[in-house]
């Protein structure tokens, strides 16, 4: 169960996509998401699927690994499809089952919604799969830096994100260990109703919280010992630079936009 979580997972590599500047990748991802919500017909989705497939191919990561990121949202996906199938009116009625009606429009809409969700998750996971957490937060910090002038703590936000992402695997490991330890003491997480199961989580959650606080405290001390005092005057070892590759990648954005807009008018 715990192993399914791929959030923040990074697959090291040296593909074109890996080498892109994180800022460009973040902007691209935003553009990808926003544009995705304008797509509302089959041909538009076809353009998107082809585009996403090409990007996945370019990352040189096994597609299987990328689609594994869909597992945690499977329930949401099913839920969306079912709700949309039954709740959307219009079109020809295919069949009636009590108060539930399935129409052609409903099926079509559910299909589009499912497509949209799958593309959304796949597209955004490409960002985290190909960008190391450090690069990602560096990118976010740089993108937010203009806002620092109006008082947005860009550096603090980025630092908190870096730390949070960094500790996801650590905490998962710890959860696994504590679960096993309590199991060895006869704890039962699998049987009983929801309330009983929720109560059975206490022996996991309390030690987990305690160690999270302890770790945070130790980390804060360790950072202070190394003279950390926020972002002011801090220089970096790796400077972000926009290169030719990044500019070229941006040229594809209007192309995608044009293709999507075209599908709206042509078909």
């Amino acid at each position: 169960m715990i192993r399914d979580i791929t959030l923040g997972q990074y697959f090291p590599g040296n593909s074109v996509i890996h080498r892109l500047d994180p800022r460009i990748k973040i902007i691209w991802t935003f553009f990808y998401i926003v544009l995705l919500f304008f797509v509302n017909n089959f041909w538009g989705f076809l353009v998107y699927v082809v585009f996403t497939a090409i990007i996945i191919r370019l990352t040189k990561i096994k597609p299987k690994l990328i689609f594994r990121g869909l597992r945690p949202v499977l329930f949401l996906l099913l839920f969306t499809v079912i709700v949309n199938v039954f709740m959307t009116g219009g079109g020809d009625v295919l069949f009636k089952f009590g108060f539930l009606t399935v129409t052609t429009e409903g099926l079509k809409f559910a299909g589009l919604m499912a497509m949209r969700l799958i593309l959304l998750v796949t597209g955004t996971s490409i960002l985290t799969f190909t960008t190391s957490p450090i690069m990602l937060t560096d990118g976010i910090e740089r993108l937010l830096s203009p806002l620092a002038k109006i008082g947005v703590p860009a550096h603090a936000i980025a630092m908190m994100m870096t730390i949070a992402i960094r500790f996801i695997p650590t905490i998962l490991d710890e959860t696994d260990k504590i679960m096993k330890a309590q199991k060895a003491r006869g704890a039962d997480f699998e049987s009983g109703n929801i309330i009983k199961r929720a109560k059975a989580m206490t022996p996991i959650l309390i030690p987990l919280f305690i160690s999270a606080f302890r770790r945070a405290d130790e980390l804060a001390t360790a950072m202070e010992c190394r003279c950390y005092h926020g972002g002011e005057g801090r220089t970096r070892f790796k400077q972000l630079k926009i290169r030719k590759l990044d500019i070229i990648s941006l040229l594809f954005a209007p192309l995608l936009l044009a293709a999507v807009v075209a599908t709206k008018y042509i078909f």
């Binding site: 504590i178 330890a181 003491r185 022996p203 030690p207």
Partner: peptide, 10 residues
Amino acid sequence: VFQYPEYQLF
């Protein structure tokens, strides 16, 4: 008894 078992006290 796991390593550092005191982290399982609750």
